[in-house]
Every structure is written in structure tokens, then in C-alpha cells.
């Protein structure tokens, strides 16, 4: 089975390139069974959202 180090690497790469069928299937298996990597996957989406909000100057509109 794929380990978490490899899974996180693939989750990162999937944001730059399309994963192969084998890659996305083994990754899917892994994140289904691994809670940590399942959370990591959600967080990668969140991280992208955060950074794009930042690029749009959202931080300037935030409340203290």
C-alpha cells in the first residue's frame, strides 16, 4: 500500500497535473483508509482557497 509521504506528494501534484488512472486509484484507496490523509486532502483545497482569497486582498477586508 502507498504510504502517507507518497500520498501527500501525489495530492500536491494533482494540483499541477492530471494523475494517471493507477495513481488516482491507489491514492483513492489510501485516503479512504487513512484519516490523516483524508483530512490533508480537504486542507489542500482549503489552502488554495485561502491563498486565492489572499491574492484578492481579502485580508484587507477582515475584521479585527
Amino acid at each position: 500500500m502507498m504510504n502517507c509521504r507518497e500520498a501527500t506528494q501525489l495530492m500536491s501534484e494533482s494540483q499541477e497535473r492530471k494523475l494517471s488512472l493507477t495513481e488516482s486509484m491507489s491514492l483513492g484507496m489510501h485516503t479512504m483508509m487513512c484519516k490523516g490523509c483524508h483530512n490533508y486532502k480537504q486542507q489542500m483545497g482549503t489552502l488554495r482557497k485561502i491563498t486565492r482569497a489572499y491574492a484578492k486582498g481579502k485580508n484587507e477586508q477582515a475584521e479585527n
Binding site: C37, N39, Q43, K49, N59, Q61, A62, E63
Partner: peptide, 14 residues
């Protein structure tokens, strides 16, 4: 990694 509470809400916090 743990579950993050309220990522959307955080964006409004300085």
C-alpha cells in the same frame, strides 16, 4: 492532520 474547524469563517478574521 486533523479536521479544520471553520476555514470559511477564518477568512474574515484579521
Amino acid at each position: 492532520p486533523v479536521v479544520w474547524g471553520n476555514p470559511e469563517g477564518s477568512l474574515r478574521e484579521a
